[in-house]
Design a protein around this nucleic acid. Structure first.
Lengths: 134, 134
DNA sequence: TCTTGACCTTCCCCTGACTGGAACCTCCAT
DNA sequence: ATGGAGGTTCCAGTCAGGGGAAGGTCAAGA
């Protein structure tokens, strides 16, 4: 297969596939004309990468996951630990975003949203931190 | 005030403050020795920026918010709209992360996490998309 | 045979919002 | 005079690619 075929079949842009080769995640062979030539196993790896990325794993995590996947004598504990750490990061991000959402939605609700200049959102932003407001 | 003072008082790193000047968010005067000289109004702006950034607004949003803040004849509707759009993006991100979290935590729960190689996480990643699994 | 258009190649710059570091300058206290 | 803590500019790197230029290759049609 050429890169366009694997792009279609993996759902990844050709640019991304070239990038993954660049950073050593895949190693497709080359045809005589210089074109990348992908085997089914390359496609399989790309699909694996696409799914890991869709779950939010970093590229470096993906590299580790691929290595574990190819290591027949891996311990599932290693995979689980990596996934658990990632899960914790996701949880932390969700918590951050929910805090932002909470604060901001309060402010938005308080804002009249008319053509007058008075605005609680700007008032809050311009105010000193309200950690200890009495 | 020199940059170190405003860094301390605003809670922003000096590097960030220089960056904000670079991209035109603030315009501190200069002393004769070439040092930046910050007025109280600069500090106020930096605090405003810090709070807006903490709520997840992009730099460009911050630029707009500052302009609105300084425009006495603004309409609060403009501020509210900007904030609402940002809120929607936050909600979308939370939803994405929660979807990842849901999938991944299921997989983690299914994984024994022992020293055997069998691992449902890797199995799922290596499998074709399960959109229509029966 | 020639040409057209789709596909492929490498290369370099761009993104956001900073951060790190090098090389150098200035101020103040000792 | 000197040492150290501040300040300055500029360059490069982060992450995961995306955009686009300049050019090589291939298959089909005139």
């Amino acid at each position: 297969m050429n890169i366009g075929d694997v792009a279609t079949r993996s759902g990844l842009p050709a640019k991304t596939i070239r990038y993954y080769e660049d950073i050593g995640l895949i190693k497709p062979r080359r045809s005589e004309n210089g074109y990348r030539h992908f085997a089914e196993s390359d496609l399989h790896k790309l699909a694996f990468l696409g799914r890991a990325r869709a779950l939010g794993f970093t590229i470096e995590d993906c590299r580790t996951l691929m290595a574990l996947y190819e290591d027949e004598s891996r311990a599932s504990a290693d995979v689980k630990q990596l996934a658990q750490e990632h899960l914790d990061k996701i949880s932390a991000k969700i918590a951050d975003l929910q805090a932002m959402h909470g604060t901001l939605s309060e402010l938005v609700q308080c804002c009249a949203g008319d053509n007058r200049p008075d605005c609680p959102i700007l008032r809050d932003l311009s105010q000193p931190a309200d950690d200890a407001r009495d």
